[in-house]
């Protein structure tokens, strides 16, 4: 009895794997190809349901002491089939990312993690922008201070040049005075 159940299990595994693979392909196809594949999957899902019924019958014939284990396995298979049916329904109306990418020329996969990544990058950019703005403000302030310093330096330069001229004049006058005094002493 249990060997028959295991045979059904193997068949179940093979068919569900095929169905999963085909469900993944459905959104990428269109027209006649898509219709054919949908019919094919529909047929295979019908087979899976029949397998489940067979397994159910097999479990009923198993002795009570070991029936609980098989029941739980059967329950999980039923849940798996329900999930497959839901996925199948979704796949028939789903839009493939590849179709979108073909249109938009973008091969990036839109996802939640990508959105988070984008937000993170945006935040980082904003922080950098704020830093740059602050840096720019400081640069402008520095420029203004620099201008004032240069203006002061120019003023000081003029003062020094004037002082130098006066010193030269004074030197010349002292030279004259010295010569006059020397002349007076000689007399």
């Amino acid at each position: 009895m249990s060997s028959d159940f295991e045979t059904y299990e193997q068949d179940f595994g093979t068919i569900t794997a095929e169905v999963t693979n085909k469900i993944g392909k459905i959104p990428k196809l269109s027209g006649e190809e898509k219709t054919q594949l949908v019919l094919n999957v529909d047929k295979q899902l019908e087979e899976v349901r029949e397998l489940l019924e067979q397994m159910d019958l097999e479990v009923r014939e198993i002795p009570i002491q070991s029936r609980a284990m098989y029941n739980s396995r059967l329950k999980s298979y039923k849940q798996e089939v329900e999930k497959l049916e839901k996925d199948f329904k979704r796949s028939r109306i789903a839009y493939s990312d590849e179709v979108r990418n073909e249109l938009l020329g973008d091969d990036a996969i839109s996802s939640e993690s990508q959105r988070a990544h984008l937000l993170d990058n945006t935040e980082r950019l904003e922080r950098s922008s704020r830093r740059l703005e602050a840096g720019y403000q400081i640069a402008v302030e520095t420029e203004q201070v620099g201008q004032e310093i240069l203006a002061n330096l120019h003023t000081d330069r003029e003062k020094i040049q004037r002082a130098r001229e006066r010193l030269r004049e004074t030197d010349a006058n002292l030279g004259k005075s010295s010569r006059i005094l020397t002349g007076m002493l000689r007399r």
Binding site: E143, G146, Q147, L150, L153, H154
Partner: peptide, 11 residues
């Protein structure tokens, strides 16, 4: 034209 003051000209 002054090397020290030319930065003030724009103001």
């Amino acid at each position: 034209d002054n090397p020290l003051l030319k930065y003030n000209a724009k103001e």
